[in-house]
């Protein structure tokens, strides 16, 4: 399931947020969108999820423009995890994870055997099976983030979009989550994450997209994009980039 963006421009409230962005996201790969606050990362992800109409340019899933795709089909193919972890009712964990199967269920049908199996797989993968009967609002921030991750995995999407999925996760669960995204990619999904953590991005990504002020500053594998020059241009901050035998690429701001 390849997602192709070409010449995408988008404005919000008269202010241009994305300018002429083009990129392709292939099945089996993990891509990470990076950039400073207000660079347009979340807007780009929304457009890729088909939730925001473009002023110019197209977003195509296997050659079909998202704008022309029926809601249900789009929802079955694309899983989208918004940032912020919004949950409004005190649902049980298993009820919340089951929401990920909504687009797969017939109009008035209950959960099928396939739905239940997918829910169980997703809960096991996100390590929340033990929380199944707990009320969501009683969970810790990290537990809730994992439950929401299980929700999006339960839909078994071909394109998985997640906006800052590592916020609220401790280092171990962050690494676990990145492994989970890798496994989803290995199973054939195209995975696209918006991250703030450069270190995590370096570790997780096959492809990086560095956005600054609405346009794509650089695109490529981590070693190509995470260079002191490009990072300084994007963030306005001097960065240190080192290759470490055990930790891989280390990226950190310089101590002045």
């Amino acid at each position: 399931m390849t997602l192709e963006i070409s010449g995408l421009s988008l404005s919000r409230g008269g202010r241009p947020v994305l300018r002429d962005v083009s990129a392709a996201f292939a099945p089996g790969s993990v891509s990470v969108i990076l950039g400073p606050n207000g660079a347009g990362k979340s807007t780009l992800l929304d457009a890729m999820a088909g939730l925001r109409a473009a002023d110019a340019g197209t977003v195509r899933l296997n050659g079909v423009a998202l704008a022309d795709m029926p809601h249900r089909e789009r929802a079955r193919r694309i899983g989208y995890l918004p940032q912020g972890g919004e949950v409004h009712w005190n649902l049980r964990v298993h009820e919340l994870v089951a929401l990920g199967r909504l687009p797969h269920r017939g109009a008035f049908a209950g959960e099928s055997g396939a739905d239940r199996a997918a829910i169980a797989r997703a809960m096991a993968a996100a390590d929340v099976a033990a929380l199944a009967d707990r009320p969501v609002l009683a969970l810790s921030g990290g537990e809730r983030a994992r439950v929401l991750l299980a929700r999006v995995l339960a839909g078994e999407p071909e394109l998985l979009l997640a906006d800052e999925p590592l916020a609220n996760l401790d280092p171990r669960h962050a690494v676990d989550a990145l492994r989970l995204f890798r496994r989803a990619a290995d199973a054939g999904a195209a995975v696209v994450l918006v991250l703030h953590d450069l270190q995590a991005a370096a570790r997780a990504a096959d492809q990086l997209l560095l956005l600054a002020d609405g346009h794509c500053l650089a695109q490529g594998d981590p070693a190509e994009v995470l260079t002191p020059a490009l990072l300084a241009e994007a963030y306005g901050l001097e960065m240190l980039v080192r290759q470490d035998a055990e930790a891989g690429l280390i990226v950190a701001p310089k101590v002045v």
Partner: peptide
Amino acid sequence: GRALDALALGEAAARSLGVD
């Protein structure tokens, strides 16, 4: 009913789940 359930995750997530 189904749309209300999806809205428990907020409007953006509900739309991504195919809710009109």
